[in-house]
């Protein structure tokens, strides 16, 4: 199980549900409470929806990791879209409503323990982790 990587491609809106399901299953297997599972699923929704709405296509991967606590769930959302010009802006609340790109990222940041984002003209990768307590 450790190091196992599951990847869900995102092309259509329905794939968001698939990504949530895979993430929730993995969180459950790792021992996350049902509430944390629900948080993880919410974060996955936001990430996958960004891909679907603004990049058109991409993927969401799940990975078991070790670090701060014995185990955590890492979620990597990746797309080949146009990239985000000013990341600090999309991490501001409310930016999504005016600018489009990056809807829900501040929420994802709040839901998860670790948050990282890398973006350039070849696309955007958001990596988040929730640690099991």
């Amino acid at each position: 199980m450790k190091g196992a990587l599951t990847t869900v491609p995102i092309y259509k809106e329905w794939d968001i549900v698939g990504a949530r399901q895979s993430g929730r299953n993995m969180a459950k297997d790792l021992g996350f409470s049902t509430v944390d599972q629900a948080r993880i699923a919410t974060a996955i929704s936001e990430l996958a929806r960004n891909i679907y709405l603004y990049a058109g296509q991409g993927e969401v991967s799940f990975e078991e990791v070790q670090g701060d606590t014995p185990v955590g769930l890492k979620i990597i959302a990746k797309d080949n879209g146009p990239g985000i010009d000013q990341i600090s802006k999309v991490l501001e609340d409310g930016y999504s409503t005016s600018g489009g790109l990056g809807a829900g990222l501040p929420g994802v940041k709040r839901l998860m323990d670790d948050f990282d984002i890398v973006s350039n003209e070849n696309g955007t990768t958001v990596t988040v982790v929730m640690w099991l307590r």
């Binding site: 919410t42 929704s45 501001e92 609340d93 501040p106 839901l111």
Partner: peptide, 20 residues
Amino acid sequence: IQTMISYSVNYQQTEELREK
């Protein structure tokens, strides 16, 4: 719970928008 998690996330965002 799932409904409320999503609600809280969005509510906080709106709230901060209001402050801004």
